[in-house]
Design a binder for these strands. Sequence first.
DNA 1: AATTAAGCCAACCGCAAAAGC
DNA 2: GGCTTTTGCGGTTGGCTTAAT
Length: 223
Amino acid sequence: MGRSPCCEKQHTNKGAWTKEEDQRLINYIQIHGDGCWRSLPKAAGLLRCGKSCRLRWINYLRPDLKRGNFTPEEDEIIINLHSLLGNKWSLIAARLPGRTDNEIKNYWNTHIKRKLYNRGINPQTHRPLVNNSSTGDIDRRQEDSHSNSSNSCLTTEVEENPPLNLNLELSIGLHPHNPITKNPNGKGEAPVLFQFCAPQTELETETSSSVPHLFRYYTSSTS
DNA sequence: AATTAAGCCAACCGCAAAAGC
DNA sequence: GGCTTTTGCGGTTGGCTTAAT
């Protein structure tokens, strides 16, 4: 038995948002701010589920959203971050001001995956694809084996290949709400240096359930 | 011009974590 | 500490648009 729905489905609209609905949501948030999504629809006079309102605001109506195509620089940032974080779209989005996790996820699936395949790189593992010598087809089993878990490559690949030891500085914008990148003193910007380390032990590698466990990060104040 | 296929993106769904009581 | 509610995330889907036949 699942959890009860978050809202009375028979009383909510679904599908594409109308201009009027958008305007109601914008007006409400401009006055009251966002948050408390559960009660927002009723208060704003919208026949929508709170989750739907939140998604609409975050992915489409937010004033700070950047519109338009991704730049080549953004492409490379996404590829680099994905190689480090896996399908953690919200974390990747936090490093790209004006972009949403949904937008990046869609862009990854429609553009970047193909781009990497064309470069001969497995988009999930970020390692060279293995060519099937008899057929010439690209062997995508690597991707299939990885698809069950966004981070599973960290266990299988590490066993097959020497772990990479990278010191990579991510010279990209900070996001004020990201607890990782937020400067602890709350002032100014702190450059964030991610230091990626080889797993300490096999046990640690086996039991790692999230990528951040495998690396540490630190910030340093610019002041 | 009509039909089909592929590309694209907004929105939905289910789950897990966080927050509240 | 345990239960319930709310929020946020990632995967998936549906439908619109464009390209190819």
